[in-house]
Design a protein around this nucleic acid. Structure first.
Length: 220
DNA sequence: GCGCCGATTGGCT
DNA sequence: GCCAATCGGCGCC
């Protein structure tokens, strides 16, 4: 097995993805992003990881998307903007999620990056993640943004600007791609738009399918 | 203006 | 496996 955790930026950070890569449907882009490398220079430190799990979020036809019914709002406007842009939002009072905007400007769509295999800047990631073990540095959407130092100040940042970049992956090496429902949704969970590297131990743990049944709430 | 709830996580049973 | 934490966005009065 290849050790991707180079002490210095190596071949994995060689070729940035062309903007045209993102100018397509999120359901096409999401599986192709597996094996590519997401890199951040937050805080002047280079941190990067191989993408091992993604989810596609579509436009108004997708009940699980932030672009489902509301139209353009202050939060989701970046989803409607130019492709190859980071859409970062804050949720659950604690966590940031990073999406990569797809489709031409004016059409809403994005790919949520859900998990990375750390490949560079492990010390910085470990410090930001309070000493957690390697496997738990980036195995979830809120964890990887913390490890990469990504927050709301990255919302709307163009990929390749120096702050955030996505590099071509290990192709021609084949990646075993698995598909499932998306994690954590209360609507749109029936769509199979989650893609992950089947053998990777760095994918998130997370609930797919309908929300767990709620106990009856005492009325009064 | 008010209240509910989330594209989650981490700690505890 | 279950559940609290935590706060901005969004729906609705």
């Amino acid at each position: 097995m290849i050790d991707n955790r180079d002490p210095a930026p190596g071949p994995l950070l060689r070729t940035p993805l062309a903007p045209g890569f993102f100018e397509r449907d999120p359901s096409v882009v999401a599986p192709e992003l597996l094996g590519c490398v997401l890199a951040s220079t937050a805080g002047g430190v280079l941190t990067a990881g191989r993408i091992v799990e993604t989810e596609a979020y579509l436009g108004s036809a997708d009940a699980g998307s932030h672009a489902a019914t509301r139209g353009i709002t202050k939060r989701n406007q970046v989803m409607y903007g130019p492709p190859a842009t980071a859409y970062v939002y804050f949720t659950y009072g604690n966590h940031h999620m990073i999406n990569l905007v797809c489709l031409p400007e004016g059409e809403a769509g994005a790919v949520l990056v859900r998990a990375l295999e750390p490949v560079h800047g492990l010390d910085a990631m470990t410090a930001r993640r309070h000493g957690r073990p390697l496997r738990e540095l980036c195995n979830g959407p809120g964890k990887l943004t913390q490890a990469l130092g990504v927050d709301l100040s990255d919302n709307g940042i163009a990929l390749g600007s120096g702050r955030l970049s996505v590099y071509d992956g290990e192709r021609p090496f084949a990646i075993d791609v698995a598909v499932s429902g998306r994690v954590g949704l209360s609507a749109g969970f029936e769509l199979e738009l989650r893609y992950y590297e089947k053998n990777s131990s760095f994918v998130s743990r997370g609930r797919t399918g309908p929300p767990a049944a709620k106990r009856a709430t005492p009325s009064k």
